[in-house]
Amino acid sequence: MLELRLVQGSLLKKVLEAIKDLVNDANFDCSATGFSLQAMDSSHVALVALLLRSEGFEHYRCDRNLSMGMNLGNMAKMLKCAGNDDIITLKADDGSDTVTFMFESPTQDKISDFEMKLMDIDSEHLGIPEAEYHAIVRMPSSEFGRICKDLSSIGDTVVISVTKEGVKFSTRGDIGTANIVCRQNNTVDKPEEATIIEMTEPVSLTFALRYMNSFTKATPLSSIVTLSLSSDLPVVVEYKIAEMGYIRFYLAPKIEE
């Protein structure tokens, strides 16, 4: 028996909006520690890892480890029917081939039940090593979203370089080139507006902008985004989910032939 009650149902709505265009079908794994997902996009260039810890749910009952295969587009369609202030409860009976999404309005005067068929998805989980990164950039998520959007109007790849001056985003295309440098600034009065750079050594990597733009759909989840870069690893773009967990996007770089 699985019953997960999330008072801040809007978080789950935002999570689906963030991943439904990147991944089509995925297994949601439920265990005592929480509700998680790990899935790659169809080209295996990007990977998304989601964790919603059990403590973040108002009620979390998971009698035994369960993996539920879902079509994320269909799941997003159902979650769109939930109000932003609704409480969302996920329910599944053992051995059942469906999952139920229950939406309760804040005043409990409207209760909705949406039942969706589950799918069999065979997906191997990848081992993601906890790595020491050469550079970690923490910046406003709206700023990062704006940069990815602006650069993608000029070119289709972005070079992200971190030096002691700051973090530089560069692109080039038929019409010309663009360079955006964000300097460390932790003097701002609001912490979520700060750009903080930790660097052990300079790093420069090239990525496809269309994946970065897809990741920025997670912007509504957090006012801060963290980019972790290392010369020989995929970049990690992380949006923390308040008090509950995180959504992490891993993107493989484009490398010299």
């Binding site: 080209s43 484009k254 490398i255």
Partner: peptide, 14 residues
């Protein structure tokens, strides 16, 4: 010309 790598070439299956 740069070639797009895949995630699987960095992270092995568990």
């Amino acid at each position: 010309q740069r070639k797009q790598a895949t995630i699987s070439s960095f992270f092995g299956a568990k």
